[in-house]
Structure formats: C-alpha cells, structure tokens
Design a protein around this nucleic acid. Sequence first.
DNA 1: GTCTATATTATGATAGAC
DNA 2: GTCTATCATAATATAGAC
Lengths: 219, 219
Amino acid sequence: MAPTDEVTQTGAAAVRPDRRARRRQETIREILDIARDVMTAEGVNGLSLAELARRLGVQPPSLYKYFPSLMAIYDALFLEGQRQNLQAMRRGLQGAESGLDGLIAGLEASGRWCLANRAVAELLFWRPVPSFHPSPEAFAVSMEMVELQRGALADAVAKGQLGPAANEEGAIYLVSTIIVGVLSQAFANEPDLPWGEGRFTPMFATLMHLLPAAFPLDG
Amino acid sequence: MAPTDEVTQTGAAAVRPDRRARRRQETIREILDIARDVMTAEGVNGLSLAELARRLGVQPPSLYKYFPSLMAIYDALFLEGQRQNLQAMRRGLQGAESGLDGLIAGLEASGRWCLANRAVAELLFWRPVPSFHPSPEAFAVSMEMVELQRGALADAVAKGQLGPAANEEGAIYLVSTIIVGVLSQAFANEPDLPWGEGRFTPMFATLMHLLPAAFPLDG
DNA sequence: GTCTATATTATGATAGAC
DNA sequence: GTCTATCATAATATAGAC
C-alpha cells in the first residue's frame, strides 16, 4: 500500500506536473484579488495578512506558503499594476491616430484603468505605504511608460500639432502632472464615479487640449 | 491646613485663571507639532498615540487629558491646517494685483504652505485615513477657500484677462486640478524640495498661464 | 499545504492610585 | 495631570504537528 501510494503520487506528479502548479497560481491570483478588495475598502495601508486570510478562508500562516511577507504582496501588486497600466496606455495609443490624439487616447485609457483600479493606482503613483519601496524591476516598466509618452509627443511635433518644445523633457512632466491632478481629484472627491462623469475627469480633455498653447508651433 | 490649601488653590485659580489654561494650551500646541513630525516621518497613517507619547516624554494615557481620542487629534490638525492654508492663500492674494496674477499668487502661496506642511496637506486633500471624516466645521473653511478663488477668477474676467466662461463653476475645478496635480507629483517624487525647484512645482506657473487659452475672451 | 500554538510587539482606550 | 496596571484587540512572523 505504502509503495503503491508513493508510486501513484510520484506518477501523478510526473504525468501532470502542472496540476499542483496551476492550483498554486490560482490561489496566488485569488490572494492578489482579495488584497485589492481590502485596499479599496480599508485604504492601501489597511491591507493586513489577517484580513486577507479571513476573506480567503484560511489561517494567516498559510499565506506564507505563497508570499514570504506582506511587503512581497505589495510588491506583486505594484509590478502587476504597473504592467496593466502600461498595457492600457499601449492599447489606447494603438486605437487612435498617432500624435496628439493618440497621446490623449493613451493617457485616457491609462486614466480609466487607474480609476477602475484605484487602490493599486494609489500604490503606484502616490506612495501611501512609507515602508514599501518598489523593486528595481518595477523601474524598467515605468521607463517604458515614459518612452510611450515621449514617442507620442514626438509624433505630435512631427505632425505639426505641437511646437518643438514638446520634445523636451519638461513636456512629459507637464502631461503627467495633468493626469495625476485629474486622478487625485477624482480619487479624493468622487472615487466611485466612472471616467467621464463628475467634475474632474472631464477636465482631462480640457487640459490636454491646451497643450498646443503650451507648445506653440513657432516656439 | 486642609482649608488653607483649598483656599490657596482656589485663590490662585481666581487670581490667575489663565496660568493653568496657558500651560495646557502650550501642551496641546506641542502635541500637535509632534503629531505633524510623526506624520511627516511615518506617513499620515503612521500617527499613533504611543509614538506621540514617546516623543512628548509622557505615558500614552496622559494624552487623553488633552484629546479624547486619536481621531480628535486628526480633527484638530485638519481644522488648523485648513485655516492656515486659507490664510496663506489670502495673504498671497493680498500681496499681488487683483485678477489672474492675484489668483496665481494666492494659489502659489497655498502651494508653498502645502509643500512646507506636507503631512497635513495630505490629510486635507488626499484623505489618507479612511476612518477619519472631517467635522462639519471644516466644511465652512473650505467654502471660504472656494469663494476666494471664485472672486479672483471674477476679477480676472472683469479685467479682461479671462473670458466669461471663467465665471462658471468648472473654472474652479480646473484650477484646483492644476494645483493638486502639481502638489501630488511634488509630494510623491521630490517631497523635500522647496517650491520652485525640481521638475514639478515650476509646472504650476506654466499651467496657470494657459488659463487665457482655456477661457478665451470671445468665448 | 494546511493547521495549532506561540513569540513578539503594537495598538486605542479605561480605571483608579497619587 | 501624571502615573501604573490592565483590557481587548490586532499585527507579522516562526516552529512544528499532521
């Protein structure tokens, strides 16, 4: 019996080596989803292993089989969030003409993602957990985000929509300040409204359409 | 002896009714200052009675003689911060011409105050403590802030600097989105730089000088 | 991979002596 | 108005049985 069981188990592991791994990935997915819920409800700082375990229906120590610490969960959420946000921006860019319209569409898609993933977006751009520092890998993703914006601005200059000053570094800071302002106000004052409704998200288009005045063609 | 002591105490209280009260006010002042330090160092959420008592050099229960709860301390910081910020805005307005320049000067003074009082500013405009809800009195102060901005915008319209659309409600949302965006970026990315340095606070003037394009005279 | 038990530390708050 | 003692609760994390 004992040998048979052993063989059965080993055999199963050999035949379906991914079965356990898949279960594991599902659990990790569930943990991250619940973490997002907790952060949305109790604030980004309000995430705790205890509450996570409670909602998952396990005891807190079990979580250590999936993540080595609470900070590691923040880390996973940060990296995943950054990638999702980058992809949202990319898709927004692709679904529009190049140039200024593309930039606006890309950033709006990113903004929609942020609004739909408030807690993670706060983690990404507002640094609400002082003891959490994103891993170096996360830096590479944010560089890509910057490159997308730089490219869209360059397109707009090439198309004659913006003046050459939009190719300088400050233009990216200007654009990021606009989107962060809109999102900050939406988060703080009307966090449950979707993009396009309320007093603040419509300001995004208004502000972006001022860019030609900020970077005049003869400048 | 006992009667004498009683009389002495009562007498002292009658002759200098303010002496104890003044000591008390000094301690309250000290508590609020330390609370700001803690919040700046550990995040707005990181404020705790234990750390507060540690730094003040007393035991935690002693704090209850001055504030009935931790939330009451947040409340006091919120109200005081709002008043200080309002006064900064008022002084900035008074030190400049009326109209657009006044609005810019007022908001810049408010921005300087926010940067110099980062933790309290976060408490005011970013709501980082989900279980804290500002008292109704605080609402009146923020209404005054809005009125100052509305007045400055109306001046700018009267002076022919901005078109009539700047008298509408959306103009105030636009202006507040600009300042919040600049401050969000400064807080998250370069919290220790003073106003005017770094990549983001200079964006404030840039964005504000786009207002005439947002509210054209013929609009 | 789950659990119980535990260590350690911290929290906000109250009772009551002095 | 200060303290000690205490309550009730919560947190992260580890050891080790199963």
